[in-house]
């Protein structure tokens, strides 16, 4: 029973990281209708910034996280301006290929700047473990902080998109850019804000990911990026609660299949579940298919 709970907690924790990354994918897709495949590499940049801030310049971990968020936010906005904005009216395939290009650019840039040698990331929340039930169940603080961050981010984003003016403008743009412009909404700056938020969240995800799995290399972001993209599709791309649900389910399924089925087959199980879900619900778990009235 305790082992089961332990697996469940690690699953939710890994899933929380996927969920935070998936939010960036889903928000950008919702508004810009593009798959930003460079999103995973922003995670890696965030982790490196935090690593250098904490390990080389001995800043307190919280400042390291803030520095990572600041750098990633700026990076996200710059990438959007330079690489994606000029392609706003280009075919979506061209944008997709550009995103893959940006992904390689970031990975190779990181190799050049920081060498391909693995860095050992020291967890920002320490390696202590919390003992529950008289020591039968131990949970690392990283796990708890990861799950808590995910909950806080979810609540904050729901409030932001539901109640604030900028958040509502983002929803309006993601539904109909032309009509949003007629309301006086600056669509370009709204898209920039979305990239900024998504990239800032990616930085948090990077720090949490490397706190749990401390080996940091320039390709660290690639696989979690793909998994989080899967999570976003799983939950219904474009939907914020969908990204959360998809991320957490994906993490739990992955850990359970590693524990009970086979470590090698865990990714296959994850994608098999994705295929089954998409066969039954093509728009994802919480994806909406809205029919327009004429």
């Amino acid at each position: 029973m305790m082992t089961f709970l332990n697996y469940l907690l690690s699953g939710i924790s890994l899933g929380s990281i996927y969920a935070i990354i998936a939010l960036g994918y889903t928000m950008v897709y919702g508004i810009a209708k593009m798959l930003n495949f460079a999103h995973g590499d922003v995670i890696m940049v965030g982790a490196y910034i935090c690593f250098f801030a904490v390990s080389r310049y001995s800043l307190p971990p919280l400042l390291g996280v803030i520095a990572a968020m600041a750098v990633c936010t700026v990076l996200g906005v710059i990438v959007e301006r330079l690489a994606y904005k000029p392609l706003r009216s280009a075919p979506s395939l061209a944008v997709l290929i550009t995103a893959i290009g940006v992904s390689y650019f970031l990975q190779n840039g990181a190799q050049l700047l920081w060498t391909p040698n693995p860095k050992v990331f020291s967890s920002v929340v320490g390696t202590n473990r919390l003992a529950l039930f008289g020591g039968q169940l131990t949970v690392s603080y990283v796990t708890l902080v990861t799950i808590a961050s995910c909950v806080v981010i979810m609540v904050a984003l729901t409030w932001f998109t539901g109640k604030t003016k900028t958040g509502k403008a983002m929803r309006a743009c993601s539904e109909d850019k032309g009509a949003a412009q007629l309301m006086g909404i600056n669509v370009n700056s709204t898209i920039s804000v979305t990239f900024a938020i998504g990239s800032g969240l990616a930085a948090i995800a990077g720090v949490l990911l490397c706190s749990a799995y401390p080996t940091l290399v320039p390709t660290t972001g690639a696989m979690p990026g793909i998994k989080a993209f899967t999570a976003a599709v799983f939950g219904g791309i474009g939907s914020i609660p969908g990204a959360m649900l998809g991320g957490i389910l994906l993490g739990v399924i992955e850990i359970f299949s590693k524990a009970y089925i086979s470590t090698q087959l865990s990714d296959a199980v994850v994608f098999a579940v994705l295929i089954i879900v998409l066969l039954v619900k093509p728009a994802g778990l919480l994806g909406k298919q809205v029919r327009e009235k004429v």
């Binding site: 003016k165 509502k168 403008a169 929803r171 309006a172 539904e175 109909d176 032309g178 009509a179 949003a180 007629l182 309301m183 006086g184 909404i185 909406k288 809205v290 327009e292 009235k293």
Partner: peptide, 19 residues
């Protein structure tokens, strides 16, 4: 019309007053 179909009537009106 191009109203925001996934938003409420009130939210649509708020968007009209965006400026």
């Amino acid at each position: 019309r191009r109203i925001f179909l996934q938003m409420t009537v009130m939210e649509n009106l708020e968007m009209g007053a965006y400026i």
